[in-house]
Each structure stands twice: as structure tokens, then as C-alpha cells.
């Protein structure tokens, strides 16, 4: 039984990896959006939206990477939002 559940788990992870690699990290819709728009749409989903003035550039680098992992942002979102925040602070 133990062997089976390990097998099932390995199978699930492989399946998941195949699924994920078949997903795209950008879409037509998100590619057309600016960093400011992605910031406006995503950064209020869990807490109030932080204004770009909150942090310096190096601090935003750390905070956006933190949020990329915490909020499962897509690569497109993380890159554009960081650029926007650093250009508007």
C-alpha cells in the first residue's frame, strides 16, 4: 500500500510538471497590459494596494520577489509590476 501511494504521488508530480510546462507564462491578454494595470488588478487581492512611493528600488526588488512566491504571480506580472513600482516611486 505504501509503495502504491508513493507511486501515485510520483505519477501526480510528473503529471503536474507536464501540465505546468504546457502552460504559458504569458497570455495575449496579460501581454497587452501595462505594469501599472497589473499592479492595480493584483496587489489589492489580499491587502490594500501599496503605493509605489512606499519603497526604494532595492526594497521593491525584494518585496515583489516575496509576493511573486507568496501570491503565485506569473512571471509576466512580477516583472512588469516591479518595473512599474521602481519607475513610479
Amino acid at each position: 500500500m505504501k509503495k502504491y501511494s508513493v507511486l501515485i504521488a510520483v505519477f501526480a508530480v510528473v503529471l503536474a510538471a507536464v501540465f505546468i510546462t504546457s502552460c504559458a507564462t504569458t497570455s495575449e491578454v496579460s501581454a497587452a497590459k501595462s505594469g501599472a494595470q497589473l499592479w492595480g488588478e493584483n496587489c489589492l487581492r489580499c491587502h490594500n494596494t501599496p503605493s509605489p512611493a512606499t519603497f526604494s528600488d532595492p526594497e521593491w526588488d525584494a518585496a515583489v520577489l516575496h509576493m511573486r512566491v507568496r501570491a503565485n504571480l506569473t512571471d509576466d506580472e512580477a516583472v512588469k509590476v516591479a518595473e512599474f513600482l521602481k519607475s513610479a516611486n
Binding site: A16, A17, C23, A24, T25, S27, E28, T74, D75
Partner: peptide, 19 residues
């Protein structure tokens, strides 16, 4: 854990698989 976010067509998805 493995986690991330990506698009299925135009729909955004996010996922995490953990032990």
C-alpha cells in the same frame, strides 16, 4: 513544495503541490 502561476489559454491559473 512546487508552486507557481501560468496561463491556460487566456485564463490565469496558479498551483501548488506539496509534501
Amino acid at each position: 513544495e512546487l508552486r507557481g502561476g501560468a496561463y491556460l489559454g487566456n485564463m490565469k491559473t496558479n498551483y501548488s503541490f506539496y509534501v
